[in-house]
């Protein structure tokens, strides 16, 4: 599941290193959203929307950080995968996923989906409580929360694969 040509040469993709990568990623994402929210709140009330609006591209760039490590077919046509299993046709890895990797790839998406089924409704309830239209703080927290949900949706399976995949054998390093 791990890109064997890229980061392997640098880190050999030991599990602790990969876990630190995942932790670092989420700390960075949370810091980024938090900083943007705090900085925006010190500006005019509408600036929070504008600041997030101008940084929309980070929603694409940050998840790619994980995708170049994990051989995920997320960049392909998702409907096509219904007919054709995930392949490595995007130039990210030189060989197709074997049966075990493909099985793990799908299994992690299943687990991520279960998490999403809980996480999204809870986030939605936070976004639309009864008094949301009266509280200025909740209104200003709406966009950062949406951003966090978006990052979770785009990066969760990759993070789970990186977190759980066992160490590669020494010969492969």
């Amino acid at each position: 599941m791990i890109d064997q040509n890229g980061l392997r040469r640098i880190l050999c993709l030991k599990r602790p290193a990969r876990r630190w990568l995942v932790i670092g990623y989420w700390v960075f994402v949370l810091s980024f959203i938090g900083t943007l929210a705090v900085v925006s709140r010190s500006q005019s009330p509408n600036f929070i929307n504008q600041a997030f609006f101008w940084f929309w591209w980070t929603l694409i760039i940050f998840p790619i950080y994980l995708r170049i490590i994990v051989t995920s077919s997320t960049r392909g046509s998702n409907l096509q995968t219904l007919m054709k299993p995930a392949e490595s046709g995007h130039g990210v890895i030189p060989r197709p996923l074997d049966e075990r990797e493909l099985s793990l790839h799908y299994r992690m998406h299943t687990k991520a989906y279960y998490i999403l089924q809980i996480f999204i409704p809870v986030g939605v309830l936070l976004l639309t409580p009864p008094e949301i239209h009266r509280s200025a703080w909740l209104v200003s927290a709406r966009i950062p929360l949406l951003w966090l949900l978006s990052f979770v949706v785009t990066s969760l399976p990759q993070s789970m694969i990186l977190w759980s995949e066992p160490d590669m054998e020494e010969e492969q390093c």
């Binding site: 995968t81 998406h109 299943t110 949406l146 949706v153």
Partner: peptide, 24 residues
């Protein structure tokens, strides 16, 4: 089941991002 969830996740991800964008 896992394959179907993979497909469902891909659809749900795109739909979520689209609806969030629409919301914003």
């Amino acid at each position: 089941r896992d394959h179907i969830h993979f497909v469902a996740y891909s659809i749900a991800r795109n739909m979520t991002l689209f609806l969030f964008t629409l919301y914003c």
